[in-house]
Design a protein around this nucleic acid. Structure first.
Lengths: 336, 336
DNA sequence: CGCTGAAGTTACAGCGCTGGTAAAACGTAA
DNA sequence: TTACGTTTTACCAGCGCTGTAACTTCAGCG
């Protein structure tokens, strides 16, 4: 059961280490007879190449890091799934790093104290600005996921949040809603995601000639259904009057549904509600959620494309890729 | 911006490589002056230790693999979060491997073709039997998560599924329900999880002197709310009559709520429903879900404890750790 | 029948780091 | 001042693998 090394196989087969290495990697220029002989030795000894040794010699590890706030947030779980699946298909394995949206953790991601462990990083920042990120890391290829303005030097994959938020807001307006609120952005320092979605929400209101009223913005203490439910509940109890509600994400929308239901407010009759992300659960809420669905497959693919090019040596300016999204209409804000 | 190696730092500081290494690792027997001098050189040059080099020299990588079916399944996302958080706290980083419950992928996990990449593996199998797993891997420490009978040779952390299922079943019985169904196990080959929960469900029925009727078992084509909703819908439309429903997991329960709502069947009045896992969403369904909550923190901790002991060299028989769970009563099956 | 070049194979020098151990420097007591 | 014990530092041999370049073999051709 002792560890078998390349050298052991080579000796056993009576060939050089390099030849064994060539067989393991299916390199050309190895005769069939030789290949068979070596393969037999490999099988017989149960040889398994050592990743560290290879990594040290090649400078590659086949590992990518995916850094995000929290995998239990459904959107991030779906993102992780997509990235993991596609990365595997491309021959990479995925290291999961959770930052909990903390500035400290995010800085740790970017200025990793270990070098050489991962070939590249896919990072969805929440607290750090893209500009700060751009300043730090230069040794490991990195692709940013997100929404905000991004520096020219860093690759970036995003969906057009302003446009998406404008779309849902106008959808609500098309249903005749006049007092449309926004729920779920952070109290205090906001993530870029929240900022741009609010921006789109306001643009939607303006395009529909509806008043932009700060009182209609309901912040939440956390990105969770519970926090959103509590925030909206408090606002409603405090006299907030709305007939439409754009939520920062599906989680907030789910919280909203609960807060509204508890107060006997009917969705969508009294208040039409929209979410964002189209998480699996959006089809199972009561009522089901109208929401914005990003093409996460395209997103994962685009991010990996950019990253692989960087790993392959591309050194140009940051590329910015926009991934498509679409409005999914369900019961919580049906078509007009 | 060229790569800085240990040797560069050593030369820059005018000391030996080993001394720099000692400083990096905070080893004793380094005078304060020397430490300062070396640290200055490190900072000045922006040195970052290379993980591969270290890994090759020490035989450790500081990486653990977590293998599970699919991170988008909420329970697994919560598991991944817990394991990742606790692993980080212990100085490890986490490699995420998704198997999609496929036998092939699971075999790949166990007989990993690469050696030396991870220090240990935490694996929640779905398709492979623990016994098959036990036969395979002997070179890398592994801890199994799950429910089934496990071979003596492998470490195993589980919750008592039979007991949990018995508890929910009896809870429904205590509400006066007589025709209690079970929803959500796989059609055809079942996972251990499903098997033991059905076992507990049957024991619960027996203890309450209720008939065990195979017609009350509704299998689902997948572990998802959608599949469960469809399965239950079909069964109901086919004449299934129940007044209580034990679901394999919260996802199945969420599907059940939808199928029942669509048919105008009231929960809990007409049918009381229970889930399993206490995912975040269980507090936000309509009605909220009565469910079994496992102590995932304890689970992650126990798994890491066992793994670290193995990594440290423990070679004894497999340990089997049982982690606590409790019944969380909510609206879908309230207290009597 | 020797020569050329392609195909197949090997030798060897690292990739960056650490563990063990030898050597040096230092401090103390006689 | 010398001998001796202790602390601190330096040296060296790998960890397992791959890239480069050099070598061998052999078919094909003049």
């Amino acid at each position: 059961m002792a560890r078998v090394r390349l050298e052991d196989v080579a000796r056993h087969a009576g060939v050089s280490m390099k030849t064994v290495s060539n067989v393991v990697h299916d390199f050309p220029h190895v005769s069939v007879r030789m290949r068979e002989r070596v393969q037999a030795a490999i099988d017989e000894l149960g040889y398994r190449p050592n990743a560290m040794g290879r990594g040290l010699a090649t400078g590659r590890t086949g590992l990518l890091a995916l850094a995000l706030a929290d995998v239990t947030i459904p959107y991030f779980a779906e993102l992780a799934r997509m990235v993991s699946t596609h990365a595997t298909k491309r021959g990479y394995r995925l290291l999961l790093e959770q930052t909990d949206s903390s500035l400290e953790e995010e800085r740790a991601i970017v200025s990793a104290s270990e070098a050489g462990l991962v070939d590249g990083v896919i990072f969805q920042p929440a607290a750090m600005s893209s500009f700060e990120i751009a300043k730090h890391r230069t040794d490991v290829p990195i692709v940013l996921l997100g929404e905000g303005p991004a520096p020219l030097s860093v690759d970036h994959v995003m969906i057009d949040n302003v446009e998406g938020a404008t779309t849902v807001t106008r959808h609500l307006a098309s249903l005749g809603r006049r007092r449309i609120g926004f729920l779920g952005h952070e109290q205090g320092r906001q993530t870029q995601t929240s900022k741009v979605r609010i921006m789109g929400y306001q643009r939607g209101l303006e395009l529909e000639d509806l008043p932009v009223d700060p009182a209609l913005l309901v912040a939440s203490s956390a990105i969770s259904a519970a926090a959103a439910a509590e925030a909206l509940g408090t606002a409603l109890d405090g006299g907030l009057s709305i007939d439409g509600l754009v939520c920062r994400d599906d989680l907030a929308a789910i919280g909203a549904l609960r807060a509204l239901a508890e107060r006997g407010i009917s969705v969508p009759d009294d208040v039409a509600v929209t979410g964002w992300d189209d998480i699996t659960m959006a089809s199972f809420t009561h009522p089901t959620l109208t929401t914005i669905a990003a093409d996460t497959t395209a997103l994962a693919d685009a991010a990996l494309d950019l990253l692989e090019e960087r790993i392959a040596g591309f050194e140009g300016l940051g590329r910015h890729v926009m991934v498509p999204h679409r409005l999914v209409v369900r019961e919580s804000a049906p078509s007009a």
